[in-house]
Each structure stands twice: as structure tokens, then as C-alpha cells.
């Protein structure tokens, strides 16, 4: 069995943005800081662990993005993924999550012997978390989201624990499945020196629209979600009110007064 991990390159959290006419651009003096989507550090790590612990053979990293996205694939290779594939075509630009899911599903279908696809919970740019279940549907595989532990992969089934609002649910499901993972699942490793050298030398193939049998619409024309009206946050009114006092008891009294006035208690 091989494992696919889908990952995305995103602006780093500290990126500074500017908005012009509803369109976001980056305003960083130091260029455009991009990172492997932080949630995907956990999915990459878990894919590698599946090859180490649960008898997976290849851990294949996939991303759909522009040429720059190859950097996050190199990160995945440096951590220990055995293969990486970039999916890139101008025709895919501007896809909504469903368009993205269609492309990823087509690319996953081309990889041999895949029984398990791992995603991060969400990507920190759009923060939508829609792609994993949509890919599962396009493949016709079972989705298992918010996974905190893969406890077993055997006899054609997988057993996982999921983090829900009211507790943790353990489920078992026949393979193939698509899972999304949360931070609790593992501690991502740092790429080793050898890993980085190997990743830098690796040739990463690119799949284009012509290489894939994508079923359904992709790209901006097929997108049903209009993201063209982004705005900055409303300016916060007023400054912080500092609670001063001669003793902590006095401060506590003052703060309590304020919070009762605000009717939040």
C-alpha cells in the first residue's frame, strides 16, 4: 500500500497583507514569506509514519499550485516522503475547493496502489477545510476527519480516533479512506541534513491538465465562490483600558465593576 499526502503552500502567518479594491496583495518588505501550510506538517509526518509503522511503501506528496509550490514539496521530501508530484496548469488557477478536489482526485487516481490519503485539517489562507471530504467524494472513498490517532491499519481496514466537540470517537472503516488530521496526532520531525540534500537534488515531475483525466469543472471559470471582495478589519475603537490600583484587591474590584457594566458576566 502507498500513502498520498496532499499539501499546500500558504502565506506564513506573519505575512502582511494589503487590500486594494477588494483584492488582497502582499505588503511585505522582505518579499512574500511562504510556508508549508502549518496543518500539513502533521499530515506529512503522519504519512511518513504510516510507511514506518503500518507497512506503507511509498509516501507520495502532492500539491496543486504554481511553480513556487515546489518548495513545500521539497520540505515534504526532506522530512522523509519518498516521492513528490507538482500539479500545475494555468487552467487550474482560480479553482474553488471543489475544482481543487477534482484535480487532486484525478492525480491520486494515477498513483499506484494508494489506499490512504492524508490531509491537514485546513489551509491557513482560506481556512475552509473543505478539500479533504470533497476529494473523498470524488474518489468514492470514506472520509474520516479531525483524526488524532491512527491506531491500526490491517486486514484492509483502518482504525482511527477523531476529535469532536464533545469528545473523542474511535471508528474503524474498510480501506480506502481519506483522512484529515489535527495537531494532536504527532510531533512533526525536522528535516535531517541528509534529507535536505536529497530533497534539493530530487527531480519533481509536473502533471498538467493534459496528463490528468479531470472529471468536472476546474479553474476560475468553474468556481462558484466569489472571493473578490476582501476587506480589512474594522478599526478597533478606543484603546485598552488599564486597570490600576494600589492593591490587587482594588484592581480585582475595578475590573469586576467594568465586566458587570459590559454585561459579559
Amino acid at each position: 500500500m502507498n500513502v498520498v499526502v496532499c499539501l499546500k503552500q500558504t502565506p506564513s502567518t506573519t505575512a502582511v497583507f494589503k487590500v486594494n479594491d477588494g483584492v488582497v496583495s502582499w505588503d511585505d518588505p522582505g518579499g512574500k514569506p511562504q510556508v508549508l501550510n502549518p496543518w500539513d506538517e502533521y499530515s506529512v509526518e503522519e504519512a511518513i509514519r504510516v510507511t514506518e509503522k503500518h507497512g506503507g511503501k511509498e509516501a507520495i506528496a502532492l500539491t496543486m499550485g504554481d511553480e513556487g509550490a515546489v518548495e513545500s514539496l521539497r520540505t515534504a521530501l526532506a522530512m522523509g516522503c519518498s516521492q513528490a508530484v507538482l500539479i500545475s496548469d494555468p487552467a487550474f488557477a482560480g479553482s474553488d475547493t471543489l475544482g481543487t478536489a477534482r484535480v487532486l482526485a484525478a492525480a491520486i487516481q494515477q498513483q499506484p496502489e494508494v489506499q490512504l490519503v492524508i490531509f491537514g485539517k485546513q489551509a491557513i489562507d482560506g481556512d475552509t477545510g473543505q478539500v479533504p471530504v470533497q476529494v473523498a467524494r470524488k474518489l468514492g472513498w470514506t472520509p474520516l476527519t479531525f483524526v488524532t490517532e491512527i491506531s491500526a491499519i490491517s486486514d484492509g481496514a483502518i482504525t482511527v480516533t477523531r476529535l469532536l466537540e464533545n469528545g473523542k470517537q474511535t471508528v474503524t472503516t474498510p480501506l480506502p479512506v481519506v483522512i484529515s488530521v489535527v495537531k494532536e496526532i504527532n510531533e512533526p520531525r525536522y528535516p535531517s541534513f541528509m534529507g535536505i540534500r536529497k530533497a534539493n537534488k530530487a527531480t519533481i515531475p509536473t502533471l498538467t491538465a493534459a496528463d490528468l483525466a479531470v472529471n468536472g469543472g476546474t479553474g476560475a471559470a468553474a468556481s462558484k465562490v466569489d472571493w473578490s471582495n476582501i476587506s480589512t478589519l474594522p478599526v478597533r475603537e478606543g484603546n485598552v483600558f488599564m486597570i490600576e490600583g494600589a492593591t490587587v484587591e482594588e484592581q480585582a474590584r475595578l475590573l469586576a465593576d467594568k465586566l458587570f457594566e459590559e454585561k459579559v458576566i
Partner: peptide
């Protein structure tokens, strides 16, 4: 925008070819 709502709406979007906005 809960574990249930997220799973369900993503499934619906995929099967009904519909737009989805979260959160």
C-alpha cells in the same frame, strides 16, 4: 461550522456540484 456541519456540507458541495462558504 462544527465537525458535523463541516463534513456534511463538504459532502453536499461535492455531490451536488454546489458552492460552499465556511465559518
Amino acid at each position: 461550522h462544527t465537525s458535523t456541519g463541516r463534513d456534511l456540507t463538504a459532502w453536499l458541495a461535492a455531490d451536488l456540484d454546489a458552492g460552499l462558504v465556511s465559518d
